[in-house]
């Protein structure tokens, strides 16, 4: 009797599973869900590996919202952002800010300290003078006197942070913060957190060339990221294979103008006030997109090696002015760099 009951029970289970299988979706098929949007002044692309398209899209919607929220806090171009408030009170009084904005400014100062001021978020007066972030295309080199005046307003040591009340103060009137060097990277780091908190583990974000990857594209298959050739628009220098890493590239070939055959681009050296001219492109692989972003800018300005402050997991590729590739020791091997001719 007991045996018969057990058999009946087992048969019921098998029958139930069979019926459910017939009526439910086959969960073994995975999908690469792709969504792209123009947000925060750049193109943001996301790819998620998932068995459920609709739930992935819903989670991704919140990740994109997070990116917009961060932009509303950090963009100096948005008059209501906390960074705009700090800038407008420069030389007047400290501004109480959210812990999040405080934290990113605190990390910015750490990047400044470790790069001896090469990375400096108080570069705002110079970036605005050169006008690469403005509405019109810059076509002329600013006057030397104007550059010298702006240079006097750049200096991370005059960004005063107070942890007691999470306030920020720019000591001199006219100073301004521009988080363009890490903003995009930070935004996709936070978007990545949203996906992870909701159980997604394999995905990729690309925010205007800053790429963050998590997990794998497929079983035992890393994500592949191409690195653009800075002088051949239709070519890649090569590709790397990544998992749980970010890569950012700083280059002189996207936002620039030329005068008398000389190229002037958007990455400004905070010591000279002019576009950095030691390299044409620098790509950095790091643990987070924010760090990759900050290190790519730093290495670009210093031509790398002397300004390199990366950890052992962080690697770089520099394309020098004479178009030679300089790799940090682990770049090729760790990330399976494949050259593309």
């Amino acid at each position: 009797m007991v045996v018969a009951s057990r058999m009946l029970f087992r048969f019921s289970i098998v029958w139930f599973v069979a019926v459910v299988s017939c009526f439910s979706q086959d969960s073994s098929q995975t999908y690469e869900v792709y969504v792209s949007k123009n947000l925060i002044g750049t193109l943001i692309e996301a790819k998620i590996i998932s068995k459920d398209v609709n739930s992935s899209k819903k989670i991704l919607y919140h990740a994109f919202k997070e990116i917009e929220r961060i932009d509303s806090l950090l963009a100096w171009q948005i008059p209501t952002s906390e960074i705009s408030k700090i800038n407008s009170y420069a030389g007047k009084s400290p501004v109480k800010i959210s812990y999040e904005t405080y934290s990113i400014l605190e990390r910015s100062l750490t990047y400044s300290e470790s790069s001896n001021g090469i990375f400096d978020v108080t570069i705002g007066p110079l970036t605005q003078l050169w006008g690469f972030n403005g509405d019109e295309e810059p076509t002329t080199v600013p006057d030397k006197k104007a550059i010298d005046s702006c240079l006097k307003l750049v200096g991370y040591k005059d960004l005063i942070l107070n942890s007691n009340d999470t306030s920020a103060f720019l000591r001199r009137a006219g100073m301004s913060i521009d988080l363009g060097g890490i903003g995009k990277g930070y935004a996709i780091d936070r978007a990545s957190d949203v996906l992870k908190r909701n159980g997604l583990t394999s995905f990729l974000f690309n925010a205007g060339g800053d790429v963050l990857v998590s997990g794998y594209k497929a079983e035992d298959q890393n994500w592949t990221v191409g690195i653009k050739d800075p002088r051949k628009e239709d070519k890649l220098l090569g590709s790397v294979e990544l998992t749980d890493k970010s890569i950012a590239t700083s280059g002189d070939y996207e936002r620039y103008f030329e005068v008398d055959g000389k190229r002037y681009h958007h990455i400004i050296d905070p010591f000279t006030g002019y576009p950095a001219s030691n390299s044409v492109s620098v790509s950095v692989i790091a643990e987070s997109a924010e760090r990759a972003d900050a290190l790519a800018t730093t290495v670009f300005i210093t031509q790398g090696i002397t300004g390199w402050q990366g950890t052992s997991d962080e690697e770089f590729l520099i394309v020098t002015n004479d178009l030679k590739n300089i790799f940090s020791p682990g770049f090729k091997k760790k990330y399976h760099f494949k050259s593309i001719k």
Binding site: D26, V35, N54, A218
Partner: peptide
């Protein structure tokens, strides 16, 4: 999206599938 997933779950597709809208 849901109906598309159901459709492909019944197809014998060996390769990876991309979804976009």
């Amino acid at each position: 999206a849901s109906l598309g997933q159901t459709f492909f779950s019944k197809m014998n597709i060996k390769s990876r599938l991309k979804y976009e809208d």
